[in-house]
Write a protein that binds this DNA or RNA. Structure first.
Length: 764
DNA sequence: CCTCCATCGATTTTT
DNA sequence: TCGATGGAGG
C-alpha cells in the first residue's frame, strides 16, 4: 500500500487515494496519467474492493493493453476488466443481443462494410442523393448515432438537403443491419447506451456490478459514451475520468468537449485533481506548447510546468520545398545516428495529412533510413483477407448478407451481380437472407438452370464449411482456404500479385493459430471462431505498432496521441495544412486544429523541430505555401529560427553544393548550437508582440521583421516590390496591427504589419 | 462476366 | 499525384 504511493507527487497521490465519489483528473501531457489510474486501481484492490467491481475503459486497444499490463504488475493475478469502449459494448451486446433485435452471433461491420451496406440501401431506395457521396451520408448517420439519435427519432432540418436524405436512408440502413444481424461500430455503443437508458432494472444491476468505473481520454467521449458512463454511475457514482480538454482531437468523430468541460456540473461533489507537472518534455518544448494552446478559448486553463533540465531550443525551420524538408530531416537524423547521439527509434516525423508522408517515404527509402509508417488498419483491410474473413463471417452468421455478397463470387464462379440482384429481390420479397434465397435458387425468377446449379454448389460449399464454425479459428480459416478454391485460384496464378495474396492468407492462418494458442492459455477465454472474428473487427494493426525495433516512426498527428519520442519533427506547418483548409473557416474546428498541433508538440521529450516550406507539391499541384498562422502564436524566447540554404533562389554558391541538387547541404539549420539558456515557460501568457511572427515574414524569410510598433502615421516605408510609400493610417495592436500605405506608382495598399515585408525606408 | 482505361476527387479515422 | 470508381469492350 505504501509502495503504491511512493514516488508520486502530491496531486498524483491525491488522485490515487481518492476512493468513493466522482473524480476528475485533468491531466496535462506527460503528467503520469496512466500511472495514476493504474495505481488507483491497485489502491482500490488493496482496500479490498473485488476486482470484478472495477471497470476501466479506454479508446484504443493499445491503451487498454498497456493499462492491463501495468495493473497486472502492481496487483498480480487480479482480474480487473480493462477494455475499450467498443469491446465492452460488444461483450454486453453478446449478452443482451435479443433485447435489441440481434442474434448473439451478430457481425460487426467495419467502416467499409457499413459504407457498402449503405450504398446498397441507397440503391434499393432509389432516392436521389443530389451529389452526396455514400461517405457523406454515412458520416451524417454516424454523427446521429454518436449523439444517440436513433433512426425513428432522426428529424430532417428543413433547408438541409443532406438531412432529408439521411432521414430517408437511416431507418432503412438500420433495418438492413438488423436483418443481417449486424452492427456498425457506432451501434456497439448506441445499442448498449439505449438499453441502459430504457431498462431501469438492467441499469441498476450493472451500476451495482461496476461500482468503480474509470475512463481514459474523457475529452474524446461522445454522447453515447457519456450516457453509458452516466448510467453506470447513478447509485454508485464512483466514476473517475481522466482527460485533457486540450488534447481533444476527435470532435469530427462526435467527441463532445462539453462532456469534460461540464463534468463538474454533471457530477456534484466531484473531486478535481490537476496533474500539471510534466515529466516528459524540456521547458522549451513545454513553453511552445503552452503558449500555443493559450490561444484557445474553449478550455480549462492550466499551468503546465516541468522540473526537467533545459535542453535545446525548439527549432523553426523554413525550407525551399517539401523535398528539401524531407531531405534535411533525413540528414539531421543520419548525422545524429552516425555520431552516436541518437538511435533511429528516437525520431518521429508527424504530419497533418497522410499524403505528406509520400515525400518523406521516398527520401528515406532512397537514403536507406529504416522507418515504420503507422497507417490505420492495414492487414485486415486487404481484399483477400476481407474475402476469407467474409466466409468466416457467413459461417458464423448466415444472415450476414454482406458476407454473402462478398463470397458468392469470390473466387470467380460465374455468379455475377445480375444473379445476386435477382436473389436479393427474392430475399426482400420473402423476408429471408440472401443465403436462404440462394437455397431456393431454382425457384427464383430470372435465374437460369445453369446459374441455379452454380448457386447450388456455392450453398453446398457454405454447408460444408458450417462444420468448422464452432471449432478453432485456424481450422475454420484453413477450411475456407481449401474448400473455397482460393488456394487453387491464387496458387495456380503466375501473377506476382496473386501469389502475394496467397502469402497474406497464409499469414492470416498463422494469425488465427496464434489466436487459438493464446486463448488456450487463458482461463475462461472462449477459443472459437466468433471470438477470433471479434478480434479482427475490433483490433487494428496500429495496435501492433512496434516500439521495440530501431526505426524512425512516421505518422499523422492523430496517430501520435498518447505516444512520446525523444526527437520530433513536425512537417508542413503551413496554412491550409495545419490548420487544415477544411477547418479554417469555423472557429471551433480551428481550435481543434490548434489542439492537434499541441498534441504533436507535446509528444517531444528533448528536441522538437517545426518546419514549413516555401513551395509545396500537393495533389499534383505546386503551390506557394504560407507559414501557418499557428507559428505566429509561438514564443520566440525559446525558439531558434533557421532556414536551410534553399538550393537556387537564395543564391547559394555552386561549390557549396554536394553532389547533385538532391543533396544540398543544410548544416546551417542543424548546427546544434550550445543550448542557449531556455526561459521558463510562461504559462498563461498571451503573446502578441515579439512572437515568431516577427521572425517569419510572409515570404517565410528568416530575416528579422520590424516590430509592428515601429511604424508611425506619415512615416516613409519601403516594400520590396512596391517601392517607397507613406503610412496613411494605423489600426489594431500586436500581430493584428494593420497599416494603410500609399505608393506613388501603385496607390493605396493595406498590410498586416506582422506578416508584411514592410519596413521604415532606409533601413536594411 | 471480366478487364481495361477515363474520370473524379482528395483531412483526420481510437473502434 | 494517385487511387478508387464506373462505363465500354472483349
Amino acid at each position: 500500500m505504501t509502495q503504491l504511493l511512493e514516488g508520486l507527487n502530491p496531486a498524483q497521490r491525491e488522485a490515487v487515494e481518492h476512493v468513493d465519489g466522482p473524480l476528475l483528473i485533468l491531466a496535462g501531457p506527460g503528467s503520469g496519467k496512466t500511472r495514476v489510474v493504474t495505481h488507483r486501481i491497485a489502491h482500490l484492490l488493496s482496500l479490498g474492493v473485488p476486482a470484478w467491481q472495477i471497470l476501466a475503459l479506454t479508446f484504443t486497444n493499445k491503451a487498454a493493453a498497456e493499462m492491463r499490463q501495468r495493473v497486472e504488475r502492481l496487483a498480480p493475478g487480479q482480474r480487473v476488466w480493462v477494455s475499450t469502449f467498443h469491446r465492452f459494448g460488444a461483450k454486453m451486446l453478446r449478452q443482451y443481443a435479443d433485447r435489441v433485435g440481434l442474434d448473439p452471433n451478430y457481425t460487426i461491420y467495419d467502416a467499409g462494410d457499413a459504407r457498402q451496406t449503405l450504398k446498397r440501401v441507397v440503391e434499393s431506395l432509389k432516392i436521389p442523393v443530389m451529389g452526396y457521396t455514400p461517405d457523406r451520408i454515412a458520416a451524417a448517420i454516424s454523427k446521429a448515432k454518436n449523439r444517440l439519435i436513433g433512426p425513428e427519432e432522426y428529424k430532417p432540418r428543413s433547408g438541409n438537403p443532406l438531412s432529408e436524405i439521411v432521414a430517408a436512408v437511416y431507418p432503412a440502413y438500420q433495418q438492413r443491419l438488423l436483418a443481417s444481424s449486424a452492427v456498425d461500430f457506432d451501434d456497439l455503443l448506441l445499442h448498449i447506451a439505449r438499453l441502459l437508458h430504457d431498462d431501469t432494472e438492467l441499469r441498476k444491476q450493472l451500476d451495482e456490478r461496476f461500482r468503480y468505473v474509470m475512463v481514459d481520454e474523457y475529452q474524446d467521449t461522445n454522447r453515447a459514451q457519456y450516457v453509458l458512463l452516466r448510467a453506470l454511475s447513478v447509485d454508485y457514482p464512483n466514476l473517475a475520468a481522466t482527460g485533457d480538454p486540450d488534447q481533444s482531437i476527435y470532435g469530427w468523430r462526435g467527441a463532445d468537449l462539453n462532456n469534460i468541460l461540464e463534468f463538474e456540473q454533471d457530477y456534484p461533489g466531484v473531486k478535481v485533481v490537476r496533474l500539471e507537472q510534466n515529466y516528459r518534455s524540456t521547458p522549451a518544448i513545454l513553453s511552445v506548447a503552452d503558449t500555443l494552446i493559450a490561444h484557445n478559448k474553449r478550455r480549462k486553463p492550466k499551468s503546465l510546468f516541468t522540473e526537467n533540465p533545459d535542453g535545446l531550443p525548439v527549432r523553426l525551420v523554413t525550407y525551399a520545398d517539401g523535398d528539401d524538408e524531407a531531405r534535411s530531416v533525413a540528414m539531421a537524423m543520419e548525422e545524429a545516428v552516425k555520431s552516436g547521439r541518437r538511435r533511429w527509434s528516437d525520431f518521429a516525423v508527424f504530419y497533418r495529412v497522410n499524403a505528406l508522408s509520400r515525400t518523406v517515404e521516398r527520401v528515406f527509402r532512397k537514403r536507406q533510413i529504416p522507418f515504420q509508417m503507422v497507417r490505420g488498419q492495414e492487414f485486415y483491410q486487404r481484399r483477400e483477407i476481407k474475402d476469407v474473413l467474409a466466409y468466416c463471417q457467413l459461417m458464423n452468421n448466415p444472415k450476414d448478407d454482406l458476407a454473402f455478397e462478398r463470397t458468392v463470387n469470390s473466387p470467380p464462379r460465374g455468379i455475377g451481380s445480375k444473379t445476386v440482384g435477382r436473389l436479393a429481390d427474392y430475399a426482400y420479397r420473402h423476408g429471408v437472407s440472401l443465403l436462404d434465397a440462394a437455397r431456393d435458387a431454382p425457384q427464383v425468377e430470372g435465374v437460369t438452370k445453369r446459374t441455379a446449379m452454380l448457386v447450388g454448389k456455392f450453398v453446398a460449399l457454405v454447408d460444408t464449411l458450417d462444420a468448422y464454425a464452432a471449432g478453432p479459428a485456424e481450422e475454420a480459416v484453413g477450411a475456407v482456404l481449401e474448400h473455397s478454391g482460393y488456394r487453387k485460384h491464387y496458387g495456380d496464378s503466375d501473377s506476382e500479385e496473386d501469389l502475394n495474396r496467397l502469402a497474406n492468407i497464409e499469414e492470416l492462418l498463422t494469425d488465427a493459430r496464434q489466436f487459438d494458442e493464446a486463448m488456450a492459455e487463458e482461463e475462461d477465454a472462449e477459443a472459437n471462431l466468433e471470438a477470433y472474428l471479434e478480434r479482427t473487427w475490433l483490433v487494428n494493426e496500429t495496435d501492433g505498432w512496434d516500439d521495440d525495433t530501431d526505426k524512425v516512426t512516421l505518422m499523422t498527428l492523430h496517430a501520435a496521441k498518447g505516444l512520446e519520442f525523444p526527437v520530433v519533427f513536425l512537417l508542413a506547418v503551413e496554412d491550409g495544412i495545419l490548420p487544415h483548409e477544411r477547418s479554417a473557416a469555423d472557429p471551433t474546428q480551428l481550435e481543434e486544429e490548434r489542439r492537434l498541433a499541441f498534441v504533436g508538440i507535446t509528444r517531444a521529450e528533448q528536441e522538437l523541430q517545426l518546419s514549413h516550406a516555401l513551395r509545396r507539391d500537393y495533389r499534383g499541384q505546386r503551390r506557394i505555401a504560407i507559414p501557418s498562422s499557428f507559428l505566429m502564436e509561438l514564443p520566440t524566447g525559446v525558439m531558434e529560427v533557421a532556414q536551410t540554404a534553399p538550393t537556387d533562389e537564395l543564391g547559394l554558391a555552386p561549390d557549396e553544393l554536394i553532389g547533385d541538387w538532391g543533396d544540398a547541404p543544410s548544416e546551417e539549420v542543424y548546427r546544434h548550437e550550445p543550448a542557449e539558456p531556455v526561459a521558463a515557460p510562461t504559462p498563461t501568457a498571451t503573446p502578441t508582440v515579439g512572437t515568431a511572427a516577427a521572425l517569419l515574414g510572409s515570404g517565410g524569410l528568416a530575416a528579422p521583421r520590424v516590430s509592428p510598433d515601429a511604424f508611425k502615421v506619415g512615416m516613409a516605408v519601403e516594400h520590396p516590390e512596391l517601392g517607397v510609400g507613406k503610412v496613411l493610417t494605423l489600426s489594431g495592436n500586436g500581430k493584428g496591427r494593420r497599416a494603410a500605405v500609399v505608393f506613388p506608382e501603385h496607390g493605396e495598399k493595406r498590410f498586416v504589419l506582422a506578416f508584411s515585408p514592410l519596413r521604415p525606408a532606409g533601413r536594411p
